[in-house]
Amino acid sequence: MTTVISTRALEKRFGRTVALDGLDLEVREGEIHGFLGPNGAGKSTTIRILLGLARPTGGEARLFGDDPWRNAAALHRRVAYVPGDVSLWPNLTGGEAIDLLARLRGGVADRRTYEDRKARLLEAFQLDPRKKGRAYSKGNRQKVALVAALATPAELYILDEPTSGLDPLMEQVFNREITRAAGEGATVLLSSHILSEVEVLCDRVTIIRAGRRVESGTLPELRHLTRSSVAFAHRAGQESELAALEGIHDLAVDDGRVSFTVDSDRIAHVLPELGRLGVQGLTVAPPSLEELFLRHYGDELSPVGEGATR
């Protein structure tokens, strides 16, 4: 399978600040790739390097096997981009901005198809194209950028936290449109810190922190690394038997409920034991990426990460 994006030991320094510290990233053709990390992990910096807007200070980045810094313009014919913090021209309307970007991308050769596609997207995202850029709210600016990106076909969509200003209904529309684009064979790099979005859309995920990759794989592969949470009503005298269970962690009794986590591949062994104990009010929460995320970052929550936003 062809690799669309690959970076190797990618490094970017701004003076003393290290934004990227040897990042490896691989995105294959046709997949929706989640690019996860907390604020300041280096997601936007990576994307700016991939777009040839910034030059790496070390390592290597490849887009369609080519150098994005040297061949930016040529590569951008195949790419559509949605920035995380959308700035619009204050005195251009949304419609004008969309047309401008589409024309720059050269995607309006078939005028009819473009207009139809744009009209459908404006309708789906419920966007009024006649307002001036300065009059749009954050969410509506985001919609302008999304419509501009999706209105012309692209081989690769690079989306930097694209849903940060959208309401839940619009997120549904967004999910549908991205799935449609991927269905047409496009590759998507979706940067986010919203895990539910990534879980719904993505085939594979790369998690980065402080400019480095910490985890990468398909969702089932990553879930494998996670634990399910188990909880039930506490009854006196269970402690010794509970303590004897294999593969459980974080055992605690709080507010009359027992809770622990269990490695996802051990759950089938633990459940019969619980049945034998006759526990009541049992809940088992499936492993989520959320938990994986917290495992990687939870201990880092109090001190601020070393990475810098661009």
């Binding site: 951008h76 720059l104 991308r105 050269g106």
Partner: peptide, 11 residues
């Protein structure tokens, strides 16, 4: 930041 979307196009 309005130069960014233009330069992200083939310009």
């Amino acid at each position: 930041g309005t130069a960014e979307p233009v330069l992200a196009a083939p310009v």
